[in-house]
Design a binder for these strands. Structure first.
Lengths: 222, 222
DNA sequence: CGGTCTTGTTTGGGATACCAATTCGGGATA
DNA sequence: TATCCCGAATTGGTATCCCAAACAAGACCG
């Protein structure tokens, strides 16, 4: 693989894992030494990440895209029509094998699993459901939305019951798809998005102090 | 403005206007002489355009993204839930001034206007409606979808009646938003997307021979 | 003591040099 | 005549170089 793609992937990972703080400045020279490559591939990776909105220009400088907690509501508004559509199409189009694949993914995440695992599966589930719709535009849009949500979800304080709740909802959505009940699946999906949004906002609100202490801008959070 | 952005915009324009044929190979050296800049800003522009899926890698080479007429159906599936949601939010949120702005845009496109004008307004209308929703994610998704549709729409054989039909539908959608009737607006928007998709597919089907003669791959068109 | 101007350093934008890989032609050979 | 092989030319990938603008620190002046 080209060096540029390696740098892109590594940097992307560092940003999404909050290894690089939101708003943090990135100088091309620092990245140069960090990744032991010259500026050319680094600049290409930055331009690419800019397209994914994980990195942004601040005047002439590069910064890690800040987390705007205010966009959580808009994100839910965006996801609901798309994901309800996705599950409806999934009912009509997904094969039993495809559905079983998603089921396995959920099963593979046991209660003892590390936090990273829960986080990843919690994101991938939605993308995989979108994939069942057979519509590549829906898949890409959902994947993008989940990426934007990803960092905020790291900030969430996960309690055992809330995590269990989310997993129950995932299983219910999948169950309705399996039972070929598109309207129930759509209703469940919409409720799930609303619920997780509320859980996330409540958690972030209760933890404002902790967030500030960790250096995160709480601007945008009502 | 930076040279890279100039190159990006010009190249984008050339691609969307079919000035550069879909699938055509782009060598960095040719672009270098064409835009009288060095490869550095050109590569940045290409990486950026790759993110917009207007340019693509073919092995080690760059090519103008081919038009896949087979994705027209998926595109309509994608747009319907988003645009129906957009008009519903528009009813609840758009100010009369905002609506009047869109109305002006439609009025400005008289029957004597050049084809480019009709093409542009026919695209922008949907983006502006999305903007009325107040949701930036919907706006960006619709803008992206209309961009992907743009080149196929150039291939369409526009007859006077079909163009008039589309414009009537636009006005009806806007009318229902103005009348604050979200469900009627949503129904109208969904019908409009279906109708334009059908018109486009019918036109392209009837003109297969012409398309081939002009060098366009008709693959993907049922 | 405070403000301002200067100057040296650092940054990103662009140009160019170099390299490895791929492509394409032409000529030798069966 | 068809095929294979080798080399020249071209390509994209990477490294490096130069420059102008931004920035920061410090000296100088009021």
């Amino acid at each position: 693989m080209s060096q540029m793609l390696q740098i892109h992937d590594q940097l992307r990972e560092m940003i999404l894992s909050l290894d690089l703080g939101p708003g943090e400045r990135l100088t091309e020279r620092w990245l140069e030494s960090r990744f032991e490559g010259s500026r050319t591939p680094i600049r290409a990776a930055l331009v690419r990440l800019e397209g994914e909105e994980l990195v942004r220009r601040d005047g002439r400088n590069w910064i890690v895209a800040p987390i705007d907690l205010g966009e959580l509501e808009a994100l839910a508004e965006f996801r609901i029509p798309l994901e309800t559509t996705a599950v409806r199409f999934a009912c009509a189009r997904a094969s039993e094998t495809d559905i079983a694949g998603v089921e396995e993914m959920l099963d593979a995440c046991q209660s003892g699993a590390p936090r990273e695992e829960w986080h990843r599966v919690g994101t991938d589930f939605h993308v995989e459901i979108a994939r069942l719709s057979g519509n590549p535009f829906i898949v890409k849009a959902i994947a993008g939305a989940m990426t934007r949500l990803s960092r905020a979800r790291w900030l969430e304080v996960w309690t055992e019951p809330s995590r269990e709740q989310a997993w129950r909802e995932h299983r219910r959505i999948l169950g309705f798809i399996k039972a070929n009940d598109p309207e129930a699946a759509a209703r469940e999906a919409a409720d799930h998005i609303t619920d997780t949004r509320d859980r996330l906002l409540r958690s972030l609100n209760e933890d404002r102090r902790g967030l500030r202490a960790r250096g995160f801008a709480v601007i945008g959070l009502r």
